[in-house]
Design a binder for these strands. Structure first.
Lengths: 217, 217
DNA sequence: CCGCCCTGTTAATGAGCGTTAACTCCTGTC
DNA sequence: GACAGGAGTTAACGCTCATTAACAGGGCGG
């Protein structure tokens, strides 16, 4: 069954991408340590050790997923924020991008902060560096959008608020069960949920800027 | 080394509580499946299988922790909300209680929604029932506090907002490293962080009530 | 047409781990 | 003072599981 050039025909994922997708799904559902390689193999139609032709090991699959999502988030975030006309527009763009990600790639969002500890030190450092960059991007934009958070001493407040809003935006995976059909997620449509999350995030930032800019402890 | 009556002297935890505490710490740090019983034993000064004198198995320790936290959250939440004079006061009390919990029992908050899947079906159902009760408590209070969310069709919005705010309030464990000293958490004092989280949560709910009450899609 | 290599397969290996068994010691009670 | 039982110990069992070894087939360049 070899050598068919792995044509990148649309709608047909490469074997490697197939593995990525199924591994993400399984890791999200039962945890990295709770999934065996045989199971991942079965999910893509090959069996167990055949995976080692595509990844150097189980750890490497997780590392690939986490590095990939972190890079995509940072890259997309920079692009969107850069294309915006002003600070508030940039914040809107960041929120919208993150919401899309949280709603459309739930598995990866779950893994993103749940399985970080199972990475080897080197990969973990790399992912953390990317995450830190993403946070700083948000912090900069938020401080420009809300002048109260740009004051001296409000940087830690802004950073904590950004972390908290990430928790808010990433909450959708937790609120729904393992998997629901596409149209329905707890009674709200995908776009309804997106709009709601967007509102909640903006409201939270506004509150941080309004009341607690000087709570630097 | 047995039979010292296990006196409930203050400042001395019972062996069982010692195990609870250390198991929670280890599970939070490296995941339920990533921690061996020998390690938990060593953390409390006994070794490996000695734990089986206090818990029927490793699963039982996790179940004990998750059931315990879920019960405490629901019980405390009901008590606080019941003692409040009005709906807004009840919401304040709920937020304050949850914030205290998130800041003071980080390990349990992490486990609470991270390791649920490693419970046996029966325990999982029990924890989920408690969690559902807690969510409904919040939903009721939020809808009373914000009339816009009490309208017909806004129930799903309110519930989604509550889930999202839980994600926000539970974000502190993720934002800080494994463990920091008591005084400092990312530059904000404990009380500063508590005040900030409180503001963020209220701001989010206000935004949900203001703009998106009819986004039932 | 030959041979390389990509992609699979199954079998074996070796480590880790939860749990149980068998045994010891100490303490409070009758 | 015997003794029942709580609270430990170490050794052994059985199972899972990631990884490696050894082998096979089929397509494509030469």
């Amino acid at each position: 069954m070899g050598g068919m050039l792995n044509a990148q025909v649309p709608s047909a994922l490469s074997r490697r991408d197939q593995i990525r997708k199924e591994a993400a799904r399984l890791f999200a559902a039962r945890g990295f340590l709770g999934v065996g390689v045989d199971e991942i193999g079965k999910a893509v139609g090959i069996s167990g050790p055949g995976l080692y032709r595509h990844f150097s090991g189980k750890d490497a699959m997780l590392a690939d997923l986490l590095v990939g999502i972190s890079e995509r988030l940072l890259e997309e975030g920079r692009r969107r924020a850069g294309d915006a006309p002003d600070a508030l527009g940039a914040l809107d763009a960041l929120i919208g991008g993150h919401v899309d990600f949280a709603l459309d790639d739930r598995d990866l969002i779950i893994l993103h902060d749940r399985e970080l500890l199972h990475l080897k030190e080197e990969d973990r450092r790399r992912v953390r560096r990317l995450q830190r960059g993403y946070v700083e991007l948000w912090v900069d934009v938020v401080r420009q959008a809300f002048p109260a958070l740009a004051e001296d001493g409000a940087e830690q407040t802004a950073r904590a608020a950004v972390h908290a809003v990430f928790g808010l935006l990433n909450s959708t995976p937790h609120s729904a069960g393992p998997q629901l059909a596409q149209g329905e997620r707890s009674g709200l449509s995908r776009d309804g949920m997106a709009a709601l999350l967007h509102s909640l995030a903006l409201g939270a930032f506004a509150a941080a800027a309004g009341g607690a800019a000087d709570v630097t402890g």
